[in-house]
Design a protein around this nucleic acid. Structure first.
Length: 667
RNA sequence: UGGCCCAUGGUGUAACUGGCUAACACAUCGGUUUUUGGUACCGAAGAGUCUAGGUUCGAAACCUAGUGGGCCAACCA
């Protein structure tokens, strides 16, 4: 028992149950088994968070095991990147291991399996074998080589290993059941011949074990208690268990714990993709600058973008663990990073889209260094000085010649506070030929105790330093870009996912270092990109601040929140059902309103849709009332009354709910 | 046409394993505070738990059927 009151997810329930049934707590052991064929992405952090999180929770070891059985795809670069990312997230593995460490052991067991008649060498083409395999709805047929003698199998397998055959000539298969409804049980391949250089074993082997044979047995060798993976491996469980059962027979004295595999739903994030193969395409096609492009959902991309390990771990915790398909809204990720950065980053002032303000009553060459608080969320962050002078920049967006009183910013004749400085009043503007405001002439007031609605950030023109700012938008314009069977995800690429501009910053930023994070006051969180140099600062926008003002505005051309379509398209009948649910709880006045609504919706309902609802459970009076109202409307507009309808009405007349009876009566 | 898995507010997870008004977080909408239209705080709206039967004093949970979604036919993992 772990004693907390926090609710457990289904995997924790399983573990608690195993513990309660006698599994000793010190036998708990987990693993994270990436294939080193690409970079880790936010989806992997869920798997990482689950297994490493369990390790932390139960103080159990967690192995990092590279599942490196396919030398054709795997590279050392990926091994290094994966280790870097996991470390960065703050997790510690017990052992760094490789499936390739077990090649000899696996081979010995395979020989044993052959001797026991549980595996055989097949010598057909892959096409022929695919044909014999059948389909999900059709059983397979046995290979003509299925009944080779043990001696022949042994001889062939040894010669496969010795490199006597060309690739594809022979394979080793488990002898299970070609008629099993689970395709994975139809004599699955255990070994194939592959003349490829392996990043660890070099050219020692020319036969390589397949995933199913390798993965489960690696778990077993490492004495993993719970082998956790994503849902698509559910069908593999039967095979996992089959292999395990036999190998257990060979080694139970030395390896007493048979591991168990359990599956959870993987993480999907809206407006992005999670497939390594597809991410690789983005890299190769030059859509992004690399695996660590700040727009990528990779861990290295998020890191470069300014996400913190803390925020990602928090995110994974909030997302939860279950077995149903899910799509997590990016807003949750954004919430997590804001929450973290709000507490930790220093506030600074930067103007991204400047317009000049001249303070006419401020002496020409005067300058003052005013005190500014670094972080009001963290008293220990201290203060810094920011320079003030006659000419400053503010954001173009923060000024309007005229505006209503919901606009808290600067307007002609209006006053506004300059953060950490004075209160200014706009008196006049100077415009360029095209009518654009070039300068705003203001007067300042040293009485800062006044109450004014708005506070603006600003930067002194002559003290300002410049920097390149990279602002990112989502990479795809579609909520689930790779879920369209008829369209390629590349069609949804957002051409405006990167905007580069030059900004003016307060001079304290001059010696900021790569990776450092700031809040640009009123704008968002920004960090210094890897491309930054002392001569040319480069900032990434990690995420904007929440902006309740932007939401009220008519809406710029931002593609941020396209209206959610699902509300529009809902069929009338389902809206009616929903309205009905609440009907009996409403005030009389509201009931009338809802009734009108239902009557209106009734026009869009077909009788076929309505009839099934006649059977609605008696206790759901509201739904039945809504159905009755709809029915009445449809009868009015010419629907012919049949027996089913009459029956429904009669049943309603006898109901104990008065509202329903009344509706029925008026038909 | 077979097998397996899944179904709870817009989204994601809970519900002490059959027992209070179905909880929490994000998102949404109000309000208070505020030298960030941020943060913090307070509040509101939103779910008869896919549908229909059944078991039971009692079902989101158990059973049956249906509907919808996902996965499975790589010498990938």
């Amino acid at each position: 028992m772990s004693g907390e009151s926090k609710s457990l997810n289904f995997i924790e329930h399983i573990i608690e149950e195993d513990l309660a049934n006698g599994l000793s707590k010190d036998k708990l052991r987990f693993r994270f088994p990436p294939e080193p064929n690409g970079y880790l992405h936010i989806g992997h952090t869920k798997a990482i968070g689950i297994s490493f999180g369990l390790g932390e929770k139960y103080k159990a070891p967690v192995n990092l095991r590279f599942d490196d059985t396919n030398p054709a795809k795997e590279e050392q670069e990926y091994v290094d990147a994966i280790k870097r990312d996991i470390e960065w997230l703050g997790y510690k593995w017990e052992n760094e291991l490789y499936s390739s460490d077990y090649f000899q052991k696996l081979y010995d067991w395979a020989v044993q399996m052959i001797k026991d008649g549980r595996a055989y060498v097949d010598s057909q083409s892959s096409e022929a074998m695919a044909e014999q395999k059948g389909t999900p709805t059709q059983v397979g047929t046995n290979s003509p080589y299925r009944n080779r003698s043990v001696e022949e199998n042994l001889d062939l397998f040894q010669r496969m290993k010795a490199g006597e055959f060309e690739a594809g000539k022979h394979i080793l298969r488990a002898k299970i059941d070609m008629e099993d409804p689970n395709m994975l049980m139809r004599d699955p391949i255990m070994y194939r011949i592959l003349y490829a250089h392996h990043h660890r074993t070099g050219d020692d082997w020319c036969i390589y074990p397949m995933y199913d044979w390798t993965h489960g047995e690696s778990d077993y060798i490492e004495q993993i208690s719970h082998s956790l993976c994503s849902l698509e491996f559910k069908p593999h469980r039967k095979l996992y268990n089959w292999f395990r059962e036999h190998v257990y027979e060979y080694s139970k004295e030395i390896l007493p714990l048979p591991p168990k595999q359990r599956e959870f739903a993987r993480l999907n994030l809206s407006y992005t993709i999670m497939s390594k193969r597809k991410l690789l395409r983005l890299v190769e096609k030059g859509i992004v600058t690399g695996w660590d492009d700040p727009r990528m959902p990779t861990i290295s991309g998020l890191r470069r973008r300014g996400y913190t390990p803390n925020s990602i771990r928090k995110f994974i915790e909030k997302v939860g663990v279950a077995k149903r398909e899910n799509v997590i809204d990016v807003s949750l990720l954004e919430f997590c990073i804001r929450e973290d950065l709000n507490k930790t980053t220093n506030r600074v002032m930067a103007v991204l889209n400047p317009v000049k303000v001249i303070i006419t009553n401020y002496p020409d060459d005067k300058e003052e260094w005013l005190e500014a608080e670094n972080n009001q969320e963290d008293a220990s962050a201290g203060y810094r000085k920011v320079p003030f002078s006659k000419e400053i920049y503010i954001e173009k967006e923060d000024f309007k010649e005229e505006a209503g009183n919901k606009f808290f910013r600067l307007k002609l004749g209006g006053e506004v506070r300059l953060k950490n400085a004075y209160i200014i009043k706009a008196n006049s503007v100077i415009k360029g030929d095209n009518g654009e405001v070039k300068e705003i002439h203001c007067s300042y007031d040293t009485d800062t105790s006044k109450k004014v609605k708005g506070t603006l950030h600003w930067v002194s023109v002559k003290h300002a330093i410049t920097a390149e700012i990279r602002v990112y938008d989502r990479l795809f314009s579609d909520e689930a870009p790779d879920s369209h069977p008829d369209k390629d995800f590349m069609e949804f690429i957002n051409p405006n996912s990167l905007k580069v501009s030059t900004a003016y910053l307060e001079p304290s930023l001059a010696d900021a270092k790569i990776g450092e994070c700031f809040q640009f006051q009123r704008l968002g969180y920004f960090n210094i990109d890897d491309d930054s140099t002392p001569n040319q600062l480069v900032f990434n926008k990690t995420v904007g601040l929440r902006d309740s003002w932007a939401k009220q505005k008519p809406k710029p051309q931002n593609n941020q929140n396209q209206s959610k379509p699902q509300q529009q398209k809902r069929p009338a009948i389902s809206v009616i059902k929903q309205l009905g649910k609440k009907y009996t709880n409403l005030s009389e006045e509201k009931q009338l309103k809802v009734k009108n609504e239902i009557q209106e919706l009734a026009k869009g309902v077909a009788y076929d849709e309505l009839e099934p609802l006649f059977g609605t459970a008696v206790k759901k009076a509201g739904t039945r009332i809504a159905v009755m109202i709809t029915l009445k409307e449809m009868l009015k507009s010419g629907l012919e009354q049949n027996n089913t309808i009459t029956e429904f009405i009669n049943k309603a007349l006898e109901d104990k709910n008065e509202l329903l009876v009344n509706e029925a009566k008026t038909i």
